[in-house]
Every structure is written in structure tokens, then in C-alpha cells.
Nucleic acid binder design. Sequence first.
DNA 1: CTGAAAGCGCTTACAG
DNA 2: CTGAAAGCGCTTACAG
Lengths: 351, 351
Amino acid sequence: MSPRAPREAPGAPTIVDVARAAGVSKGLVSLAVNNRPGVAEATRLRVLEVADQLGWRPNLQARTLSTQTTYALGLVLRRDLRIVAADPFYPAFMAGIETVLTEQGRVLVLSVVGDEAAEERAYRTLAADRRVDGVFLNDLRHDDRRVPLLVELRIPAVLLGRPDGDAPFPCVVLDDAAGVTAAVHHLVDLGHREIAHVGGDPALLHARHRRRAFEEAVAERGLVPTAVVDTDFSMTQGAAATAALLAGRTRPTAIVYANDPMAISGLGVLQEAGVDVPGEVSVVGFDGTETARHTHPPLTTIRSDPQEWGAAAARTLLTLTASGSAPDVELAPAELVVARSTGPAPPARST
Amino acid sequence: MSPRAPREAPGAPTIVDVARAAGVSKGLVSLAVNNRPGVAEATRLRVLEVADQLGWRPNLQARTLSTQTTYALGLVLRRDLRIVAADPFYPAFMAGIETVLTEQGRVLVLSVVGDEAAEERAYRTLAADRRVDGVFLNDLRHDDRRVPLLVELRIPAVLLGRPDGDAPFPCVVLDDAAGVTAAVHHLVDLGHREIAHVGGDPALLHARHRRRAFEEAVAERGLVPTAVVDTDFSMTQGAAATAALLAGRTRPTAIVYANDPMAISGLGVLQEAGVDVPGEVSVVGFDGTETARHTHPPLTTIRSDPQEWGAAAARTLLTLTASGSAPDVELAPAELVVARSTGPAPPARST
DNA sequence: CTGAAAGCGCTTACAG
DNA sequence: CTGAAAGCGCTTACAG
């Protein structure tokens, strides 16, 4: 294939074809289609019309090479597959991102990694290859090492949640605490005094927030938690934690889980053990997943809107890459949705 | 910013820097790092060493512009969000893709769309912008219009499953039928005579395959299906179908669902109606999800390996883009995993 | 308001 | 075996 021969039979039109057909230079075509000042209106219209007739679209790769922008955003998922697979958060979150990227001709580059080393490599590769104009920083962690990493790599980012340290990036926040607080009040109002929490992975900030909100709400009502158990957010550990609570000294009459999958596996453990839900133990999930609506009984849970979160984060990240800064965004807080897995506390029994 | 000034303070090294430092032309550097013939071994080694010292990586965008290859693969998801979110197939499938892309320095471009028009636009945009070197064709449909579309767009593809028409693309096949057949035999062996199927979306080939396998296996054992109901694969329709079966003239003693989420919502409906599982009705899912292991009772289901499917598809697509052709791949078939949601048929009762 | 030219950082025939 | 040059298809100061 000679370098002079067009690669495609008819040859997709290039900016040169448009310039020739419009009788102007290719530089002018570029100015015209990019709405830059310094082009007579009549000329602009003519160029646009010719471009349209020829069916010309600027070649993205060439534009990328010139402008150093890729029109792509990156998302790196680091999670145990068992956990990602059962967790409906990400599909909805990504769909939300897509709603805004699509209409902007942007694209999402996805990376799924297993451990922290692979995660760091993923960010470094995205940066070195200039694959993306910015990234979403999800599953924020305590003292998150990715923040200095992204600063070092000079890659713009939007944080999903409020970081616990300083970070030179805008954040999009969805308050978990309000829902947990409401759940605890709901349970206390139903007469529960022995309430336990099956928390998530304490390395993750949102797991910490949920746990702290639980502890504070319980204290606020003059109680102490019956137990608080950390997990990795997996159904397996949710089930194990539930079994441990059942076997413990004081059996809780209500359990607040840090996500729906664990609440569902907990429900399974309770029912397998012959414990009536909500007759003997009330169960509260977190997420407001589709599955939670279809269990027996349907789960009381705390609902957030991951799709809106994705959309807001994408808008913020695009603003950041375009202008160099973007304001923080506060989304509607997660809220309690009461279903039939919670009910009045059983009459107190002597141990 | 003058066009002569380097964009980054120290300036990431370019091929020119390497050529200068190694005392050769940049063309030779390119030949050396790409392992092309016509470079003296000693020269090649020297170039490589210098490149390494300078920390040079070829600029991906520039390479893309020259070679017209993007080192990226595309996946377009068109599904109702309610369904995607509850379905753990895609996270695992994408993780499988990533395992092979990552080690090849490739990247996955993801698009999530709602309807068929948006889907077509997504493929057209990927092609027009030359975002990807090839795409995964998932959720194969009857007489799939995407096949001629991709031919028209001249974009290589790998089919996930065997198409029902001709297609000039390799396919990676995972046989659904064997597992469904085994499930029916399992139920018949347990004494069931009234077996129903809650199928998936009949527009999708895999839903059709599962349904046909069900019907054939039932016939093979001299029975007729009690009922076969189509759905859209959502938990909601799975629940509705189950309620309809309960209310029907002949109540089935066993139900085979086309996916786990519907089996789970079906289980919820049965239990809410006071129907004992498996005492009165046996339930079989399809997918082998994590959730199915944690329900009460745990689900008998049909397990496949979506992660391996993703990895095999990625390997096939890379082979195709590299060499212009790739052989079809046949994966291990889905297999029955028996748990406690299936049991002996209840004694026959008079209606 | 417009044109001509250089530049983005690679790859690839073509000469020597 | 190596060098010099053209090409990929855009964008962007710089002159006029």
C-alpha cells in the first residue's frame, strides 16, 4: 500500500477535500467548523454546507494528536469480582455517565482490575497513553493513595464522595448518613432496643460513613449498638456476620446492613435458621436495588440514585476538563424506603 | 502557548529525542522498537537501551494516526437498566475481557444505550470516529440487524453465540441447552410431571435456545410443558409470570426460569403466597449467580462461566483484528448445579 | 477576514 | 543496514 494511495476505496473525505470544494484553505475550514472567531459569516456557512454535502467528519485521531484531548473519560473498577457481580451500583452508575457522554460525542474507557498494584498500573497506563481526558475516582478510601497519584500524573479527576483529606479535585457527594439515621429511628420507633450493624469494608469511606451514622443515631436514642461487624461487602461475609450475630450473647432484634446483597444473604441465613423476619428479627438493607423489591419479605432499604450520581459526575468532570475547575455537587441524600422486612420488636424475652 | 514550546515542563521524550541520543534517524528507532527487519542487532539493542533510559514510550495517538489502529475494543450494551442492573453477567463478562486486554496494553470502550436507534448510532459513531479496532456482538438476536450494519461499517466483530443466519464473523459459543436439558431430567427424575418454563426475551437467541431445550427435554421424557411464558428477563416480569402460573388451571410442581433474577423474584412470589419451595413447587434458575447461593433455600441453577466467555471473546477478537480471521471457539457448556430449591414432586392431588 | 506553513509524534516506502 | 522525506489529518499562531 503506497502512502499516497487513499486507504479506503472512495476515500473518506478529509479537511483538504472540504477546503478544495469550498475554495478556501484547510486552516479556514478548521476555524469555521470549530466556531472560532475570524471567519466571515458567509464563508462559515458555505464551509459548513460543503462539509455537510461531502459528509465530512473531522478525524478524531488527527484532532487528538493536535489538541492533546481524547474526548474520552476513564473509569477504573477495583473490586473483587464476587462483589462487583452482585452489586447493581456500577451498571446504573455507568449508564448515568453514558447519558451525558453520548450526547457530547464522548466515550467511556473502562478498566477492571483485581488488586491495588494493578489499579495503579491502570491509571499510569491511561495517563502514559493519554487515553482519557479525566477519570472518575470511585470507592474513595481512607487516605486514598490515588489522589496523590493522579496529581502526579496530572490527570483531572472527579471524586465520588467527599474525601477525608485534602484533594485538588471537585467532588460529587451523595449523603449516605441521612438514610441510615432514618432507618435507626424507624427501628427504635418500632420498639427495637437491640440493633446491630453489618458494615462494609472499613477501608472505604462510604462504609465508614454508614457505620458512623449508625453508631451516632443509636447513641442519639440513648442506646448502644448490640454489635457492629465489618465485612468486605460480599454476600458471603454478610451471611457469616449474620450467623455470628445469631450465635452471639445478645441476639439483635434488628440488623442494618451496609448494602442490599448482604441484607439478602443475611435474610437467607435468618430464614434458614428458622428465624422469622420481621417477626423475630427486622432487616434493613442499603441501595434500594431491584432485587430488594422481590425478596420474601420485600426489604426495607435505603435508596440512592446511582444513575443520577453518574450523570452528575460526568457533567462535573467535563466541566473540569473544559475549564480547569468545577464546583462540588451535592445530590439528594439517600432515603429510607420502608417495606415488610421491618416490623415491631418482638416482646422482650429473658435470656 | 507557542507551538514550538514543549507542552510539558520537562517534556515527555519523543522519538526524536531517542534518535538523537542514539545517534540514528527516527525512522530507524521506529523499526527497532517495532521489531522490524532491516536493523542491525547491535543498533537495535542500543536504540532499545537509550529508549529505556530516557523512559520513552511511543505516543499512542501519533501511532494511531499513522497506523489506523486504536488498540481499543468496543462493547455496546443495549438493555433496559432494570435488567442490566440485576444481571451479574456483564460485570463478570467485562472482567474476563479485561484480563486479556490489560496484558496487551489494550483498552475497553463501553457504551450503554437504551433503545435500538441509540444502539445503531453508537456503532456508527464508534466506526466514524475510529474509536475501536473491533467490537463484541452480545445478546445476539434473531435476524440480527447489527450483523449487516457492522459489515457495512467494515468493523471486525466477534459474535457471542452462534448466529441464526450467515455472518462473516467468528463466534464464541457457550452451549445453554445442555444445562436446561439436565435440569428437566433432574426434575422428571424427582417425579415432576407438571413443569413450566419462564423464558426470557424471545427476541434474544439465547432465550430461544433455552426455551427450545426446555421443550425438547420435556418431550423427550414423554411429557408436555405445563406452560411456557415469555418475559423480558426482568425480575418484575418473572414475578408476574410466576403469579400467573400459580393462578393457572394446572399449577406446575416445578418451574425452570431463564435466569437467576427471575427465579429469585419467582421464589419471592411463591413464598409470599405461602407456597413451600421445594415442598410444593421446585425452582430452577439459570446463571449460577452468587445471589442464588444465598437465598432461602439456595437455588438449583445452571452455571456458566461468563468471565471465561469474555476472555475467549477478547482473544478471538484480537486474533481477528491482527490476522483478518479467527476460528470459532466452543466453551464448556453450562451445567446444572443442584441445591435445595428442587426436591421430590409433591403427591398428586385432585384438582 | 484569509492563506501558507509549521507542528502534533509517529510509520513507512524509497534511495543509497 | 541506514537516512531523509513524505504522509496520517487535523489545529494554530503568524503574516498579510
